[in-house]
Design a protein around this nucleic acid. Structure first.
Lengths: 192, 192
DNA sequence: ACCTGAACACCGTTCAAGT
DNA sequence: ACCTGAACACCGTTCAAGT
């Protein structure tokens, strides 16, 4: 709040004439950041392609604003029009793509959880998995960390692409099973 | 630090004789919390079953300690022996399960990203997706939110199970493709 | 070697006093 | 209606002074 006041050339206390708390400011910021996420593929592309594009744009946007991640993850969406519009496009895209209505939100939340977790990971230092001393405690892991080193792009990008491909493939599979055995749709979404 | 000092019945400044910063304390806490995560299925079960059990235990543990999530997500693991031991068990389980060594860490990171994202989501209020006024901006989404209401267990649990099933199914698929076409392993992990 | 209390440079928020 | 400066109740961390 002090930094914001400085930028606006006012006293900190003056802010509270326009805003009821820092949380309200963050809500506005969240809505502004969410507006930068690309949802243009929904409507023109199949749901799985569009969801992949959305996920990449979403992660990229929040990797640039990592301190916001734990905040927006628990922030109610009421009163954030751009955020609402984003979810509307995704929900409409999934519905049109054949997803049953009672699974649309769960699908969005699942993909979003992966995205936000990946965006946090992207803001971690590259050497986060360096074992240091105590290689003795984790020989197989130490080897695995060494084996993935030096392959061009950042490690977190590789993990994201691997996971996103797997997640989308798995979701395609879930949807196909629902279409083939409509009565066991509940089972597919609930697990054992 | 002040709360910790109170609990230990000392002055806050006395803590700094035993610890160099709050971050070091959090590193210890992280290691202690990670020790509660169940990795016992690795070794006795196939990698996909074990990974599923691990993921459930991991999410449950950190859903109970949500303020730690953004911290541990970027905390280096050096000097955290229990954390190292956990990763060792998972890495060893994936290697034994047939995963190529240079994909083990990426697979762990991908699943972990989903877990931590889901644990954050689990600590959000249940009404996070209530649209409030402005239903006009998101009719399809509003319907989807209504459609998933009132189905027993918490919404975040359903999204987690749906996503975890999809993710593991997708990873099984990725591994199968690698076994069938070993030379395109790079493609499978890198995406297009 | 370890403790203590005071101090420093920060926070978000409130409030009486101004215009 | 909106601003100002002082104040409140917090932070993590440092440091001179003690034992």
């Amino acid at each position: 709040m002090r930094a914001l006041a400085r930028e606006l050339r006012t006293a900190v206390s003056a802010l509270y004439n326009h805003v009821s708390s820092k949380d309200e400011v963050l809500n506005w910021v969240q809505d502004d950041v969410n507006d930068a996420i690309d949802t243009s593929s929904f409507g023109s592309e199949p749901w799985d392609i569009a969801l992949t594009r959305w996920a990449r744009s979403y992660r990229e946007t929040f990797a640039k604003h990592s301190p916001l991640i734990p905040v927006i993850a628990v922030l109610p969406i009421a009163g954030a029009p751009h955020t609402l519009t984003m979810y509307e496009r995704v929900a409409e895209g999934l519905r049109t793509g054949g997803w049953p209505e009672d699974m649309v939100v769960d699908t969005i939340v699942a993909v979003e959880s992966f995205i936000l977790g990946s965006a946090m990971d992207a803001s971690a230092p590259e050497w986060i998995f360096d074992v240091g001393d105590r290689c003795d405690l984790a020989p197989a892991f130490t080897d695995a960390v060494a084996a993935r080193r030096g392959s061009g792009r950042p490690a977190s990008d590789r993990a994201f692409v691997l996971g996103l491909n797997a997640l989308i493939t798995g979701l395609q599979n879930t949807l196909k099973e629902i279409d083939e055995f409509p009565n066991s749709a509940g089972l597919a979404s609930f697990g054992r």
